[in-house]
Amino acid sequence: MKAAIVVFPGTNRERDMALALKRVTGTAPRMIWHHETDLSGLDLVVLPGGFSYGDYLRCGAMAAHSPVMGAVRAFAAKGGHILGVCNGFQILTESGLLPGALLRNANLRFLSQDCYLRVENAQTPFTRLWTKGDVFRTPLAHGDGNYTADAATLERLEGEGRVAFRYASATGHVQADDVASNPNGSLNSIAGVLSENNRICGMMPHPEDLVDPLMGGEDGLPLFKGLVEAVVR
């Protein structure tokens, strides 16, 4: 799997993502600076976490209009696989590649903690090594992760199985108004969503930060291992 990570001014989680990708592919991913527009030969493009362009205006708003995103849109149109984590998810919604938007956390605080995610659709390149209903731990760290979408969009996402992950308790119980399990207040506890073709996934938590026993666990590793299998297949 030939993977690349897009780096914007203010991106700061690209190295964690590179570690995770190298762990499953054996080679270091290409780093793509936001001015570059050549994505040829790639199987996977990752938009990592951070604070692109200082989060000015809205998180991800500036990055969505940077030169590289034109190339990322073309890559998406050709059926390329794209993963957006945290700020990367915000950029994907701002650029219209994924529906909805991410609002300020409901409690107005920057959250940096572990959370549990329940897999809602296991028939995707990002979730294929899990089973629907599986629960895994991931760290999260964001100020604007409160997912929202209008009623029609929400209905479509839910109806088409395009909710990839939901925030849940450690035992897999989902309750949107429970601050303990849905810390940022996301609508329907949505933590990650998919594009129509299931090849673009955006999520707020950081599976790349639990991919090695030295990090405290490998709970996030199935996402990356599954991607390699899906893309190589």
């Binding site: 205006l57 809205r58 708003a61 209009h65 919604t93 701002e94 529906p99 909805g100 938007a101 609002l103 929202t148 979408a149 209008d150």
Partner: peptide, 9 residues
Amino acid sequence: KNLLANLVI
């Protein structure tokens, strides 16, 4: 429409 507002929200 293009930048200043996110019409979703």
